[in-house]
């Protein structure tokens, strides 16, 4: 179940790949009381997917992805609360544009570096953005958060209801588009060259690949996807808090992705589902053990299951196949 773009990989969508969507639709009808949690999970799946594109496929290690998630969230929120634009499509569009520009501008500078330097730079950019949002209270609401956000009915038809039904469908639909685009990219020649860069940066340069441009493209696309996720969070909550830009948000996201499995597309699905459901059940009951538990879980994954839950499943499947023979 590895999804690696290459010139020999068939891009056909397998039966198993429809499973998340079947679950997503079924969950709406089976668990109506959990729709707001469901919408948040869908948003984080999109966010994790955007991270998988850069970390898992292009091999760009970043701890500052919250910069784009937060920028998208604030762009949509500010547009509504300060400029009175309530059209959800327009809010998404502005968030995407802001993140594309930000991704291009910062990526052009920081992607020249690699490894630890790059990691620190991504962190620095997210910190700067957080500080700006914190200080520019007249625009962002600062530490109090940004409220007064209005989201008009989608297509003039579906209004955002109290139970989060509309929000859930919106998130599911947008995630579907985001997944489809990401999957297309991964199976494209561009996706294959990203894997090449991840596998061997030096050799990609030596075969004449425009590596910096490829990385910048991947980074910008990922920024846009993260921005969309952020904007969806704004529309769902009709509120933006500083925490969308926090380092914890980036760190938590990385934990989710590693938990699910990096560089596999569906690791970005499983990670947030498991993490956020566990958080919902355990963090309230045992708040004092939650962080400890996550820390231990991460240690176990890194030591024994480098490729996350999906990697474990892969190995189990391989094992049963061997025994069946």
């Amino acid at each position: 179940m590895r999804h690696n773009g290459s010139y020999s990989a068939s891009p056909r969508i397998g039966l198993l790949e429809w499973l998340p969507w079947a679950i997503g639709v079924a969950a709406f009808f089976l668990m109506p009381e959990y729709l707001s949690l469901g919408a948040r999970i869908l948003i984080f799946i999109l966010y994790a997917l955007s991270l998988d594109l850069v970390v898992g496929y292009a091999g760009i290690v970043t701890l500052g992805h919250s910069a784009f998630f937060g920028l998208g969230a604030y762009a949509a929120g500010i547009l509504s609360a300060r400029f009175g634009v309530a059209d959800p499509a327009l809010q998404l569009l502005v968030a995407m544009t802001a993140c594309a520009l930000m991704g291009l501008a910062t990526g052009a500078v920081i992607l020249r570096t690699r490894g630890l330097t790059l990691l620190m730079l991504t962190l620095a950019i997210a910190s700067i953005l957080l500080e700006v949002a914190n200080k520019a209270t007249s625009i962002t609401g600062g530490a109090d958060g940004l409220s007064g956000i209005v989201v008009a009915p989608i297509l003039g038809l579906f209004r955002f209801d109290l139970f989060g039904k509309t929000a859930y469908w919106l998130c599911l639909a947008v995630l579907f588009v985001g997944w489809w685009v990401t999957r297309r990219l991964i199976y494209s020649p561009f996706g294959a060259s990203l894997v090449g860069i991840r596998e061997n940066h030096v050799r990609m340069v030596a075969i004449g690949s425009p590596v910096p441009r490829r990385l910048l493209t991947a980074y910008t696309i990922s920024a846009v996807l993260a921005g969309v996720a952020g904007a969806l969070l704004t529309q769902t909550n009709q509120f933006v808090g500083l925490n969308v830009l926090s380092f914890e948000s980036s760190g938590e996201l990385l934990v989710m992705l590693i938990l699910g499995g990096v560089g596999r597309i569906y690791g970005a699905f499983i990670g947030p589902v498991v993490y956020m459901i566990a958080q919902d059940m355990l963090a309230k009951q045992f708040p004092e053990y939650w962080s400890l538990g996550i820390g231990l879980l991460l240690v176990i994954i890194v030591l024994f299951a480098r490729d996350g839950i999906l990697g474990i499943i892969d190995r189990l499947v391989a094992l049963t196949r061997k025994e069946a023979r």
């Binding site: 773009g5 290459s6 010139y7 020999s8 990989a9 068939s10 891009p11 297309r184 990219l185 199976y187 494209s188 020649p189 561009f190 996706g191 294959a192 060259s193 090449g196 990609m204 075969i207 004449g208 690949s209 425009p210 441009r213 490829r214 493209t217």
Partner: peptide, 24 residues
């Protein structure tokens, strides 16, 4: 074969395409 394909694609100038599946 994927190793060699990457170099072939670069030389042919098709390696930057974003949407069509590489296997096509």
């Amino acid at each position: 074969v994927d190793n060699v394909s990457l170099a072939v694609a670069e030389r042919r100038g098709v390696s930057g395409r974003l949407f069509r599946p590489a296997s096509q």
